[in-house]
Design a protein around this nucleic acid. Sequence first.
DNA 1: GATGAATGAGAGTTCATTCAT
DNA 2: AATGAATGAACTCTCATTCAT
Lengths: 214, 214, 214, 214
Amino acid sequence: MSIHSFAGGMDIGARRDNGKHNAILQAAIQVIAGSGYHNAQISRIAREAGVADGTVYLYFKNKEDLLLSILRKAIGEVVAQLEEALARERDAASKLRRVVEVYFGDLGSDPALAMVTQVHLRQVDAELRRQVGDIMKPFYNLLDGVIDQGVYEGVFNRAVSHRVARRMIFGTMDETVTAWVLTGSKYDLAALAPDIVRVLLYGISAREQVEEEA
Amino acid sequence: MSIHSFAGGMDIGARRDNGKHNAILQAAIQVIAGSGYHNAQISRIAREAGVADGTVYLYFKNKEDLLLSILRKAIGEVVAQLEEALARERDAASKLRRVVEVYFGDLGSDPALAMVTQVHLRQVDAELRRQVGDIMKPFYNLLDGVIDQGVYEGVFNRAVSHRVARRMIFGTMDETVTAWVLTGSKYDLAALAPDIVRVLLYGISAREQVEEEA
Amino acid sequence: MSIHSFAGGMDIGARRDNGKHNAILQAAIQVIAGSGYHNAQISRIAREAGVADGTVYLYFKNKEDLLLSILRKAIGEVVAQLEEALARERDAASKLRRVVEVYFGDLGSDPALAMVTQVHLRQVDAELRRQVGDIMKPFYNLLDGVIDQGVYEGVFNRAVSHRVARRMIFGTMDETVTAWVLTGSKYDLAALAPDIVRVLLYGISAREQVEEEA
Amino acid sequence: MSIHSFAGGMDIGARRDNGKHNAILQAAIQVIAGSGYHNAQISRIAREAGVADGTVYLYFKNKEDLLLSILRKAIGEVVAQLEEALARERDAASKLRRVVEVYFGDLGSDPALAMVTQVHLRQVDAELRRQVGDIMKPFYNLLDGVIDQGVYEGVFNRAVSHRVARRMIFGTMDETVTAWVLTGSKYDLAALAPDIVRVLLYGISAREQVEEEA
DNA sequence: GATGAATGAGAGTTCATTCAT
DNA sequence: AATGAATGAACTCTCATTCAT
């Protein structure tokens, strides 16, 4: 997931910036990825970004805001890419495939970011978790749209509730990315996409798969 | 999930116990469930358990060990119950069904424990996470055994790799339990088991369509 | 003002103590007297008292509570001594004389304490000032009692309002002690008492004084 | 107390000014009066004055100098007015009356300024306090002059030392103004002047009684 | 075994001041 | 003269852990 100048964090008005906002964000991703949210001192993030401690607070309200900005940026970009990619696909199955591909592609290209979103972002308390939920909502909505379409088209089983479908899809992707990042992100995450999509669509049972292949 | 005297935690030699080990473990589950790992002070756990602060350290090496003991106990009991339950089932599909039922049944009957394992246990650092992996291993092995058998029996698709299958199964269960606990554990978790099993086996695609393709 | 074990500060229950409460209080008076409230670090107070930083928080809720405890103790002792001393005097003029004598005597025997109450205690913000007012109330009430009696006896001029009388008495004593402490507490404060009392009673005018002396 | 362009603060050589010096001084009085010296950030004072943070340092050496400039200005104007007013009075008693009237009149017409000089100015450390003393000296000298004259004229009691007289006068005025400002400056401060003057001259004793003793 | 008073390291955040523009 | 982005020193309070009793 490439990092362009992104308007996350607090509103900075007409600040000189000089790329400091992004530098701090990148430094935070690296430091948090390496040692976790609770062990990532602001002073280390500042040093890594090449700015003074106080400068961090010119661009982010506090440490929590810095963490949320990372997620906002990451999810924002995934959602933006997905919206573009899904617009080019017709049927729901293809769209589901694209969801997995984009999600794996983005996180798979930035292991440090994946480490933060998959692992360290969970290390937060109730209040923060609520805000994380808000940020994730557009992504969930997008997923729900695909499921809706699939059921409407008749390619997704209407007997499977939204709730269950969404949890299987998100749970499987999440677990796959987390396992990948925790084992050192050594293999190509995106390459797993086809297998994951197939299992989401047909499950692990041999029956239909076999018949399909027949 | 009933709590027997469980030999988790550090090795305390010939200890009298008096149920204090369990009292502390239970108190820790309640306190951590209520306010998170990082806000659960040892002094509050001790007070809740009716012992002095120092006494906690007679039964657990440190706070980290206390947290791991909770997971060890929970997973240990799930695995024990599963081993017993699976022994009574013949085919792999039935065994998979039992896995989901037992997992949901256990965590579903102890929301505080579920809160700790699903949410707060994630709030730990790298070193701790490695140990969490070790504790989960027996559970993963058990899951792998079921998958093996299913493939051998021909009911599970041999084209689906172990890795992918295990991640779908665990990821879906995990996401389902987490969503349940984070929304206040208001509905019956165990009641979701049949739907979850069906989606694990057949995915979200419409069977009819697949059969049409046959 | 001698310092006995005084139950100021937070309620400590059945603590071992070992004089730590008083040691910290004394250290705080010395350190604050020397460098002011805002420059008195807890760590320096702790070092001076021979305890660890954290120990301060076993005996006082926070730095503010520590400051208020000093005032509570000082005013508490002044009031206690005054109640005893005034009980032995009959007429209002004698009582007024005792007030000045005790006030000057107490603060005059502990310059560091005087420095804290007269100078540094003023370095606080609105919320704290309100609490300071509450603590001073018993002293003000005592003063009012003397004025009441004087007016009733006919020795104090009923044309002088309570408000004005109290402010003259307290303002004059306060300014005298402050000037004494700020000039290095070199002379005997208590020795000024007779002159101060005379001026409080008869003012600076020569007229009555002259007639009285006539 | 009307505010003329006053040459307080650091020496800025040939400065253009544009009224910024005064604007900053006024802003500082307002901000400090509202939230105290330690809570009055330079950035807030600058914003209130409509200048940039850095501009403050073109007119004042530092925050301390800004605070002292406020006092210098206030006392300077009081002294100037007093010199003028006292020149028109003949006897010492009338002069004392004018001192109280002018002091109460000036501070009574500018509660924010009174708040700063009476309350927040006390929140400073030793070094600063010494300078405050220097600034107050002309005012004290003026007071001493009046006392001298009164003693010489025979209307002030020569048995009352300068030190005691000055402290009573200043302490009483100070306490009166402070109480007025801390209770919200709701009543007319200047109206208290006659009562205060009477008490300064004749004390709180009942004149009749004194005369009886005569 | 049990206690709980004492310890002390550790970090987020503010804000007066500077200086390049 | 004026700006305001950047600096970085400074400090209170918490809490896991220890150990004398």
